[in-house]
Simulated assay, not measured.
Amino acid sequence: MKKWLPVIMAVALSACSSTDETIWYQLPAASQTVTQRAATDSNRLLWVEQVAVPDYLAGNGVAYQTTEVQYNIANSNLWASPLDQQLRNTLVTNLTGQLPGWVVSAQPLGSEQDTLNVNVTGFHGRYDGRVIVSGEWLLNHQGQLLKRPFHIELKQQQDGYDAMVKALGVGWQQAAQSIASEVSRLP
């Protein structure tokens, strides 16, 4: 029996050790139904040229702030596609739904388009159960520049990466709403 003890212990320990399963995340789409219309003379055109993220957000790992000055980039909780692409695509979807009479695109639309660039400085969960969505946007409207900051903090409804990504999605939708509110007032 003693000679089998090391084998039994090895099997038991290997059963207890777990390999980290990789989980992939995609930002949730806007909850509203969006109908894209063909461009006509009455439509205003908005090109979302770029959504830039800092280096710590540009990798695959979902970012989590562990202290006031430290961040952890997950190894097993990863973005399904580059975060800047997800942010740009969901911004186009959200703005399309919130700007009736506008054609919003991730592709250039012509010479009479307005151009939007967004610089995201924060898009992460935080040690106190909140998520941060922050940055600034710059709109070129008929040759005039309009620049606005945004900073959104939301409380996660539950613990874990799923809840964090959902809360980040809600924060990004709120950022899109604030952009749409400003854009819709343009002459």
Score class of each variant (00 low, 15 high):
M1S: 14
L5I: 15
V7C: 09
I8F: 12
I8V: 15
A15H: 06
S18K: 13
S18I: 09
T19W: 08
D20L: 08
E21D: 06
T22N: 11
T22V: 15
T22A: 13
I23Y: 08
I23F: 07
W24T: 15
Q26W: 08
Q26C: 05
A29D: 11
A29H: 11
A29G: 12
A30L: 02
A30F: 02
Q32F: 05
Q32L: 06
T33R: 13
T33V: 15
R37M: 06
A38I: 13
A38Q: 13
A39C: 07
A39L: 14
D41Q: 05
D41R: 12
R44L: 07
L45H: 08
L46H: 09
L46T: 05
L46N: 04
W47I: 00
W47L: 14
V51A: 07
A52G: 03
P54D: 01
P54L: 00
P54N: 05
L57W: 00
N60L: 03
G61S: 09
V62H: 08
V62G: 11
A63G: 06
Y64E: 12
Y64T: 00
T66V: 15
T67M: 02
E68W: 08
E68K: 15
V69F: 09
Q70S: 14
Y71R: 08
N72V: 04
I73C: 02
N75D: 13
N75R: 12
N77T: 07
N77M: 11
L78T: 06
L78P: 11
L78I: 14
W79I: 10
D84L: 01
D84F: 00
D84R: 01
D84E: 10
L87V: 07
R88P: 04
T90V: 12
L91C: 06
T93G: 01
N94G: 10
G97I: 08
G97A: 06
G97Y: 09
Q98S: 14
L99C: 12
V103N: 12
V104E: 12
S105K: 08
A106Y: 04
Q107F: 06
P108G: 08
P108T: 12
P108Y: 08
L109Q: 15
E112K: 11
Q113G: 06
Q113C: 10
D114K: 12
D114A: 15
N117E: 09
N117V: 03
N117P: 01
V118A: 02
N119D: 14
N119F: 06
V120R: 02
H124A: 03
H124P: 00
G125V: 01
G125M: 02
D128V: 03
R130V: 04
V131S: 05
I132T: 12
V133M: 01
V133Q: 00
G135P: 06
W137K: 07
L138C: 10
L139D: 02
L139F: 01
N140G: 04
H141M: 02
Q142F: 00
L145A: 12
L146R: 14
K147I: 00
P149K: 13
P149D: 13
L154W: 00
L154R: 10
L154P: 02
Q156W: 06
Q157A: 14
D159W: 03
Y161L: 05
Y161K: 07
Y161W: 14
D162G: 00
M164E: 13
M164W: 09
A167V: 01
G169E: 01
V170Q: 14
W172C: 03
Q174R: 05
Q174G: 00
Q174I: 03
A175E: 04
A176M: 04
A176D: 04
S178I: 01
A180G: 13
S181T: 13
V183N: 09
V183D: 05
S184T: 05
P187E: 00
